[in-house]
Design a protein around this nucleic acid. Structure first.
Length: 487
RNA sequence: GGCCCCAUGGUCAAGCGGUUCAAGACACCGCCCUUUCACGGCGGUAACCCGGGUUCGAAUCCCGGUGGGGUCACCA
């Protein structure tokens, strides 16, 4: 069997949607698993909505996710150009052929006429579609209409009484009756091809042999097959993967929260987490492990393990897996990735010094355990910047216990004596405290925690002290001692 | 509404006619670890949409119903 050639063909009318990303991912996985080729083509035939900025953003998102392509826009290849608006001559030529072989014809109906026709059908309770008005226009009719300056579109002549079978790799055989299709437009009045026409032409010319795309395209497939047949082209295999749904089980859209990959990137989700998560949406390796490396997924990915039923996008699970990757990644990497959020929150100078970085490193190492995305880091880092006031009731309750000022003073003494503490020495010092002071653990740790962080819960104290640094540690201790001593 | 797709716990899902038969993960609950929280470890609650068939035997096959979804553009 020849090499698999698959493609992802986004239209640059918006950022890369989470569903689009998943389609791209599955195509890429299929290609990489089978040693085939992955092509990226831009479908920009919607002149009004397509924007170059979107194209760039989509490409950036794909790369961020970790995908690369063997052929396509930006990387070139044997079958270019890879942007549909740069292939207009090609479509024109194919359209001409269809016209000559009687598979297509000019239609002069105006939008108003079509709308009226549609309404008439509806009124009669029939399905609204093109009735075939211009189907059998003779040469003279056409010349007359042309002379009147009427604009025309090209329609594909759909055969009657035929059943088109789509042999879908995930769904099996799906039949469509031509009766329900109606002659569809292949070239718009401005000469630009429509989606159904351009995809078929491009997929064939680019030698795509497996079309993997979202289920919403399933009803389009018979139209494309008709075009392949009219041109005597071999049809590719199709695989329609199920949709990604929002919490309410409707197709994911803006009202379900973040829908573009870019939004997740900005919130501090790691590409490997999204990659892992998205690959599990509709596909399952069958084993028990769900945290899988890119290599592992590539190795195991198969289309026959792709689910037919739609999948609800589960943010909880994404959060979990992303948090997992945040904890697993090398600290240096997380420091680099977290810095922008800290900068934006005003916690870090634009140009941090080496010493600053060491401090952040300690801090980030402490708070990363609490994160499900990097943007959350500013919330957790607050304890290191905002000096506690100890005004809250529960803070007061803790600090006003017996012996608190003695405990805090003792700690202060030890820290000053020891100089700058690191995690190990801080841990050793803290551990000995209850015994040395002859006071129960809870009575020493809770006041200390409150004094240092202004909270009754949080990271290990031996981590807090080094991350806080000597200056702040002593300052907070002094303030807490003052509060504890006052009555 | 027509056409089409789908149907295992709250969510993602394993299962492809019978010694695994109801895995695993997220979420939730409990316990342990930690004299805090989180992480981590251990355990628990929780599912085959309904009705007919086929079969010695159905979550698994067929039909119907119900439910959900997609699609019906000179958008892709």
């Amino acid at each position: 069997m020849s090499k698999a050639r698959v493609r992802f063909a986004p239209s640059p009318t918006g950022p890369l949607h989470i569903g689009g990303a998943r389609s791209a991912l599955f195509n890429w996985l299929y290609a990489r698993h089978s040693g085939g080729e992955f092509i990226v083509r831009i479908e920009d035939t919607d002149l009004d909505r397509s924007k170059r900025e979107f194209e760039e953003e989509i490409l950036l998102s794909l790369r961020w996710l970790g995908l690369d392509w063997d052929e396509g826009v930006e990387v070139g290849g044997q079958n270019g150009p890879y942007r549909q608006t740069e292939r207009l001559d090609i479509y024109r030529e194919v359209a001409e052929k269809l016209l000559q072989t009687g598979h297509a014809y000019h239609c002069y109906c105006t939008e108003e006429e079509l709308a009226a026709e549609r309404e008439a059908f509806m009124a009669k309770g029939e399905l609204p579609r093109y009735g075939g008005r211009c189907r059998d226009l003779c040469q003279a009719d056409r010349e007359k209409l042309e002379a009147e300056g009427k604009r025309s579109v090209l329609r594909f002549k759909v055969p009657e009484d035929r059943i088109i079978s789509v042999n879908d790799m995930v769904r099996g055989k799906v039949d469509f009756a031509c009766e329900g299709i109606g002659d569809f437009i292949i070239v718009k009045s401005d000469g630009i091809p429509t989606y159904n026409f351009a995809v078929a032409v491009d997929d064939h010319l680019m030698e795509i042999n497996h079309v993997i795309r979202a289920e919403e395209h399933l009803p389009n497939t018979p139209r494309q097959i008709l075009i392949y047949e009219a041109l005597a082209w071999e049809t590719p295999s199709f695989a329609h993967i199920s949709l990604i749904l929002g919490k309410d089980r409707a197709k994911m859209s803006k009202r379900h929260g973040a829908t573009s990959l870019e939004q997740y990137r900005k919130q501090g989700y790691l590409p490997e987490a999204l990659f892992n998560f998205l690959s599990l949406l509709g596909w399952s390796p069958g084993g028990e492990d769900e945290v899988l490396s890119m290599e592992n997924i590539v190795e195991q990915f198969q289309l026959d393990r792709v689910s037919k039923s739609p999948a609800v996008f589960d943010l909880d699970k994404l959060n979990w897996i992303n948090g997992f990757y945040i904890r697993q990644s090398p600290l240096e990497k997380i420091v680099e990735l977290a810095l922008p959020y800290l900068k934006e929150g005003g916690y870090v100078p634009e140009e941090p010094t080496g010493q600053d970085k060491a401090q952040f490193r300690a801090m980030i190492s402490v708070v990363r355990n609490y994160l499900s995305n990097l943007a959350e880091i500013t919330d957790h880092v607050e304890i290191f910047y905002k000096d506690p006031t100890y005004e809250e009731e529960d803070m007061q309750a803790v600090l006003k216990q017996d012996q608190v000022s003695q405990v805090l003073s003792a700690v202060r003494q030890r820290i000053t004596d020891a100089g700058l503490l690191n995690e190990e020495s801080a841990k050793a010092m803290i551990k000995k405290l209850p015994k040395e002071l002859g006071i129960g653990g809870k009575k020493v740790f809770m006041p200390l925690r409150v004094a240092l962080t202004g909270h009754t819960q949080g990271p290990e104290l031996y981590q807090v002290i080094p991350a806080l640094g000597m200056e702040k540690t002593l300052k907070r201790l002094d303030k807490a001692i003052a509060v504890a001593s006052s009555t």
